[in-house]
Nucleic acid binder design. Structure first.
Lengths: 181, 181
DNA sequence: CTACAATTTCAGAAATTTCTGAAAACTCTG
DNA sequence: CAGAGTTTTCAGAAATTTCTGAAATTGTAG
């Protein structure tokens, strides 16, 4: 690996964390490498930097593209495909949340709705527990979708206020502007 | 497996989702089973219901306890340990977020801080990218910790208001009550 | 169309994770 | 403290995931 010590440590860390994040070591390393790279890299550069096989790089990039965490960028005069991560960290966070929601939450929400549709086929406790779970998930995803609509600017302000906002809600009570801004 | 069709489907689904959630199939199934069960179950009941080995049940329960998602409950007159999930879904969500933060975010935050402490050992772009990432993570975890301090009641109201809250912030501007309520 | 460059696919090898059964270690009870 | 009941540990088996090299496919320039 021909990388600065900084790159090296960062890349190895992302590789180790990969399995906890639901991606594999290589995918984590590729992402880390691109994240720290000022300009786009092609697959051969990644392969060489990480000391992995060319096919592994190909599969890793494919997965990262499926996650929308890595983008193709054409460099004029070079036939090879080049890859980058989005610059805007807020965008990355949004993508991460959306993709995780899609993979980790939506299938369960669908399943819960299906189970409820089947009518009362279980004991009362189970039925109630499932409804309650579905409602909770709907509330949280609804809130997320609402927040995702905000401009970054507003979002940062909201997050900076933190829990102080709760006090405001108490005060303002029902006199809030309507939902669709 | 001697479970109602409802339990069966729910348990199998959680088993399948397990790998996406960072737990294994068995752990997902054990959790699902306990989640739907009105009363606490002992390890043998779980073993029988899921058709797995007794030792696997033991390890699964241990992991779920490490996640704080399952609790030990002593049933008078029975020497066996019995297990349940917390009733309050909000509590479960809080625990889930905290534990995932601990496993998926905190180690990286620590690593980023360490890298920054080492002084300027990389190129400017990388250094900047790492600082930016650390700041973003700190902001988000700070916001979460702030929200976690709220009562469930307040949190629900906040989530129900959704993005309308952004408009309120605009209006109220700097005249918010101080952070410590 | 041909020849070469670049990328992807995929079967099997390698590595990792999960699961089991047997044994060890607790923990009550009499 | 003996012994039955219960839980945990752990080495190896089984299953799953990841990785590789070779072959197939796609893309491009002449």
């Amino acid at each position: 690996m021909n990388m600065s010590p900084l790159h090296q440590e960062f890349v190895l860390h992302f590789g180790e964390m990969g399995s906890r994040w639901g991606i594999n070591r290589t995918v984590g390393q590729i992402y880390a490498l691109l994240f720290l790279s000022a300009d786009a890299l092609n697959a051969d550069q990644i392969t060489e930097a990480l000391g992995i096989s060319r096919s592994n790089t190909s599969m890793g990039l494919k997965e990262l593209q499926a996650w929308r965490l890595v983008r193709l960028k054409h460099v004029p005069g070079d036939r090879k495909d080049h890859f980058t991560t989005p610059d805007d960290l807020w965008e990355i966070v949004r993508i991460l949340i959306e993709e995780r929601k899609k993979r980790e939450i939506d299938p369960t929400l669908t399943k819960l709705r299906t189970l409820e549709m089947q009518g009362p086929v279980g004991d009362d406790y189970s039925e109630a527990r499932i409804s309650e779970l579905r409602e909770m998930i709907e509330m949280m995803t609804g809130f997320y979708e609402d927040m995702a609509r905000l401009e970054t600017e507003q979002l940062v302000r909201l997050m900076t206020y933190g829990s102080r906002i709760a006090g405001v809600i108490e005060k303002v009570g029902g006199y809030l502007p309507s939902s669709k801004s």
